[in-house]
């Protein structure tokens, strides 16, 4: 009982202390605003620019969502094919491995050339590419993770390949797909924000943060940062709920 209280209390206490310490430090030491504005001032800005905040969050959030859905679907389908077709797997493997260690957002400027600077598409393509990597890798791992006992069992039943896929392989891979989606949901928001730093349309959170910082509107910039944090948590929370719903149906 006491352990649980400490477990829940300790992080909350740390969070409150950090916020209070931040406020006191900034006010007390009179830190310049460019270094760190006090939390209360950021809160005031959030209230002041609420409508603009919502618009920018919606723009970035839509990009992240479209990219996430497209990238994840492509990744699952490609992984399903690659799990069956070895040569395709070996052709794609080095590309995916490279994509995992490369700053994909760097493609933003040339994508703007390809799709037009006034289009949302370049950012969505970036998000989809970034999302593709963890979902593909985890799905493939899941599809290969069939336990030998289950495979032997299905073989003894003389099950067809499609039956094996439906009864053993896919259900076994679902938790892995969600692991990939959990990582991908955070990456989607992060890359949607960051892609805006590379130019193009000026309607999302990333471009607002950059322009506010450039105009010395530091508290305003932090307000947009807070919105992007909220967006990140929203995406992460949503995938967690989705995972819970999907796994409950499988175990229940």
């Amino acid at each position: 009982m006491r352990g649980t209280a400490v477990r829940v209390g300790a992080p909350l206490l740390l969070g409150v202390l950090a916020l209070a310490g931040w406020e006191v430090l900034v006010r007390g030491a009179a830190l310049p605003a460019y270094l760190l504005p006090p939390p209360t001032e950021i809160l005031g800005q959030i209230r002041a620019i609420w409508d603009g905040l919502v618009d920018a969050t919606r723009a970035t959030g839509t990009n992240a969502l479209v990219g996430l859905v497209v990238g994840a679907l492509l990744a699952v389908v490609t992984a399903a094919v690659a799990a069956r077709v070895t040569w395709l797997d070996q052709m794609v493997a080095p590309l995916v491995a490279a994509a995992a260690v490369v700053p994909i957002v760097a493609l933003a400027p040339v994508l703007s050339n390809m799709f037009g600077a006034t289009s949302e598409t370049p950012r969505r393509v970036i998000v989809a590419l970034v999302v593709f990597v963890p979902v593909f890798l985890n799905t493939l791992r899941g599809l290969r993770q069939v336990s030998p006992v289950h495979r032997d069992l299905m073989r003894s039943y003389a099950a067809t390949p499609w039956q094996v896929t439906r009864t053993v392989t896919l259900p076994g891979a679902v938790p892995f797909i969600f692991t990939g989606l959990n990582i991908a949901s955070s990456l989607a928001v992060i890359s949607a924000v960051v892609a805006e730093y590379f130019g193009g349309l000026q309607n999302g959170l990333g471009s607002r943060i950059a322009s506010a910082a450039a105009q010395s509107g530091y508290a305003r910039a932090w307000a947009y940062v807070a919105a992007s944090i909220a967006l990140g948590l929203l995406f992460y929370g949503f995938t967690l709920l989705l995972e819970r719903a999907a796994t409950r149906r499988h175990t229940g």
Partner: peptide, 26 residues
Amino acid sequence: EWAVQPWLILSQTVPLIALAPLVVSW
């Protein structure tokens, strides 16, 4: 660990890199 771990996990899900233009202003 109890105090820091949840924040650590949380911080991986939020776009901390959004802070870049602000750190740059230093």
